[in-house]
Structures are given as structure tokens and as C-alpha cells.
């Protein structure tokens, strides 16, 4: 067992973890932050994406011990304290960017990482960036539309599909 301490959504947390503890297990099971999802568990689907020191990372494919001292943001850290949704979350709602919602936490976190690096992406940029995030119900059209809307672009001409 090793002691790990990290800042999760602005709050300092610590815990004793065994060597094989994954970051996603530490977040979901130890911190009860179950917004971060585990889809494939093999680093392909992206439902577990969180930010580690500002970088998008698949939390199912990183050990909790490796995040010792890190600053972590999960989907629970996106909305304001009063419940006002983050602009990306609001855009997903406005543009029907989710159906079952399972992939949404990872999609939102990846989108936030994209817009931080590239505040005005093209549709092609968004689709390329989301290569590591898989959705199995809405298809990607409205997800891409939501992200472009969150970037402040006029998406009214993009047909709903």
C-alpha cells in the first residue's frame, strides 16, 4: 500500500492504495466520483477520460500511484458550484449531443481539452480529436455539432440527423 494525495476538482484528497489501483478505481470507488465511466477498460473507448495536470488522459490506463501530487479534473468538476452547467455540457444538451449518456463524461472532457488547445476548431479538427472517444448511440454528428457550438460557432445551418 502507498499513500497518494491529489487535488480532485479543487479538493485535496488522499488515500492508501495498493500498487495495482487504477486511477479510475481511485476516483470511482474510493472518492465515489462515479461520473467518470469505464466502458471498454482497454484504453479504446474514452468514457474514462479525465484531466491530469490539464492533459486529457484515459484514467483506466494509468495507475493511481502515478497521479500522486497531480491536479485532476473529472466531469463532476465541470459545472459551477450552483449547478450551472459548463458551456460544453450546456451545448451537449442544447444540440442533443447525447442519448444514453454513457460516453458523455469522456466526450465532454476530451472536448474541453480540445477547446483549450484549439478554441476555434473545424468540424474535421473535432472529428479527428475524438478518435479516442466512442459513442454507440447518437452517432457523432450531434456531438461534433455541440462542440462547435460550445466554441461559439453558428451551428444553425448544420442539419440535425
Amino acid at each position: 500500500m502507498a499513500k497518494v494525495t491529489m487535488t480532485v476538482n479543487g479538493r485535496k484528497v488522499s488515500g492508501e492504495v495498493p500498487g495495482n489501483r487504477l486511477l479510475v478505481e481511485f476516483l470511482r470507488e474510493d472518492q465515489r466520483l462515479t461520473g467518470t465511466h469505464v466502458g471498454c477498460d482497454t484504453s479504446q473507448c474514452g468514457a474514462c477520460v479525465v484531466h491530469v495536470n490539464g492533459k486529457a488522459v484515459k484514467s483506466c490506463t494509468m495507475m493511481a500511484s502515478e497521479a500522486d501530487g497531480a491536479d485532476i479534473t473529472t466531469i463532476e468538476g465541470m459545472a459551477e458550484a450552483d449547478g450551472t452547467m459548463h458551456p460544453i455540457q450546456q451545448a451537449f444538451q442544447d444540440n442533443h449531443g447525447l442519448q444514453c449518456g454513457f460516453c458523455t463524461p469522456g466526450m465532454v472532457m476530451s472536448a474541453a481539452a480540445l477547446l483549450k488547445d484549439n478554441p476555434n476548431p473545424t468540424e474535421a479538427d473535432v472529428r479527428h480529436y475524438l478518435e479516442g472517444n466512442i459513442c454507440r448511440c447518437t452517432g457523432y454528428h450531434n456531438i461534433v455539432k455541440a462542440i462547435l457550438a460550445a466554441a461559439g460557432q453558428d451551428v444553425s445551418k448544420i442539419a440535425a440527423e
Binding site: 484504453s43 488522459v57 484515459k58 494509468m62 478518435e131
Partner: peptide
Amino acid sequence: IGDPAVRNR
């Protein structure tokens, strides 16, 4: 290589 999250690790 891979996707953005994979490239960060």
C-alpha cells in the same frame, strides 16, 4: 499516434 489521450501518456 493513437488518439490525444493516448499521446499524453
